[in-house]
Simulated scan of single mutants.
Amino acid sequence: MTITAEESSRFAALLDSQSERLIDRWTKVVAASLRGRMTEAELRQQVQELRRGLHAALGHGAFDLAAEESATLRGALAEMSRSRAQQGFTATETAVSVFALKDALVDVLDLRSGDKETLADFVAASGVVDQLGLFTFERYARSREELLAEQAEQLLELSTPVVKLWEGVVAIPLVGTLDSARAQVVMERLLQTLVDTGSPYAIIDITGVPAVDTQVAQHILKTVVAARLMGAECIVSGIRPQIAQTIVALGIEFGDIATKATLADALRHALRMIDKSRRASGTVSGAPNGRGA
């Protein structure tokens, strides 16, 4: 709904002349809807920012939320939506903070008089408030999606830790489903750890992976190839009998990649290879050999 320049001017004048009454009533309605989850002082400050932004947007002819003159108002609405999404408020609780302006307008305007101009002004103002409410809802939804995406990324990182088991040996224990997004995180974190530690061996433990299909196997193979390009060898551990049968049935080939039943077996293998390499180069090994691991 659009309003005329004259209606915008009268709405701006009302926001100016009845500023304190509108802010008081607006703040009280919002505070009641949030049931004490924000202080009245915080709400009053937000309401004042919204009123200032709306007043500025209305003072340039017919109201247009997309216009340059409404930038301050859009910014205030977007910031409120973002902060409410982060604080765990619902979309309804956030939108009420805008729609409560209608209650404040009813309290200020004498609608019972039946004056046509007053009623027309209220209808026009309600249309503006509706636009603000829709904008707020959209920004809240966008902020919520961004927040969930960030949390999902953080969970991915937390669910794929890379640990140093021994000097020259790191391991990445996988738990749960290994999809494309998580496989990318696994590869990035493993490669970065190999760079940081200079480890020649990495163990990819799939004990916690419920099932291995062709897609999961491909993800593992790509990670192994990437690690080899970094000069490190990978050992895949956690090959349980059921997993082994599935791999054979699917015809998946791991080639020359070392596979072990348990993480302990994989660590022993890595230590033997490190010890063998050191002996071949004439270096005395300070780490235990395979018999002692």
Rank of each mutant, 00 (worst) to 15 (best):
residue 293 A to T: 08
residue 257 I to F: 06
residue 34 L to K: 04
residue 114 G to S: 04
residue 103 D to L: 13
residue 293 A to E: 07
residue 182 R to C: 15
residue 70 S to W: 01
residue 81 S to F: 02
residue 94 T to W: 00
residue 7 E to A: 14
residue 32 A to P: 00
residue 226 A to W: 11
residue 205 D to F: 01
residue 133 G to V: 07
residue 200 P to Q: 15
residue 189 R to T: 08
residue 263 L to F: 11
residue 75 G to S: 08
residue 247 I to C: 03
residue 226 A to F: 14
residue 39 T to P: 01
residue 23 I to N: 08
residue 15 L to K: 03
residue 143 S to G: 10
residue 223 T to C: 15
residue 258 A to F: 05
residue 201 Y to L: 14
residue 42 E to I: 05
residue 54 L to T: 01
residue 142 R to W: 10
residue 260 K to Y: 09
residue 194 L to H: 01
residue 196 D to N: 09
residue 138 E to K: 02
residue 213 D to H: 12
residue 158 L to I: 11
residue 293 A to I: 08
residue 155 L to S: 08
residue 236 V to Q: 03
residue 272 R to Y: 07
residue 122 F to T: 04
residue 217 A to N: 11
residue 58 L to F: 13
residue 145 E to W: 03
residue 114 G to H: 10
residue 52 R to Q: 03
residue 15 L to I: 10
residue 166 W to A: 14
residue 210 P to A: 13
residue 110 D to T: 10
residue 267 L to I: 12
residue 30 V to R: 00
residue 98 V to S: 00
residue 253 E to D: 09
residue 72 T to G: 06
residue 63 F to L: 12
residue 19 S to A: 15
residue 241 P to R: 02
residue 125 A to H: 06
residue 142 R to T: 08
residue 248 V to D: 08
residue 147 L to C: 04
residue 184 Q to H: 11
residue 36 G to H: 13
residue 27 T to D: 14
residue 142 R to I: 11
residue 5 A to H: 07
residue 167 E to I: 07
residue 10 R to T: 13
residue 156 L to V: 06
residue 156 L to G: 10
residue 83 S to K: 09
residue 50 L to R: 01
residue 112 R to M: 10
residue 114 G to P: 12
residue 95 A to D: 04
residue 91 A to G: 11
residue 215 Q to E: 15
residue 241 P to M: 12
residue 123 V to L: 10
residue 85 A to V: 03
residue 30 V to M: 03
residue 102 K to I: 09
residue 161 P to A: 14
residue 246 T to W: 08
residue 16 D to G: 05
residue 65 L to P: 05
residue 214 T to V: 12
residue 280 A to H: 10
residue 96 V to N: 03
residue 25 R to P: 00
residue 18 Q to E: 15
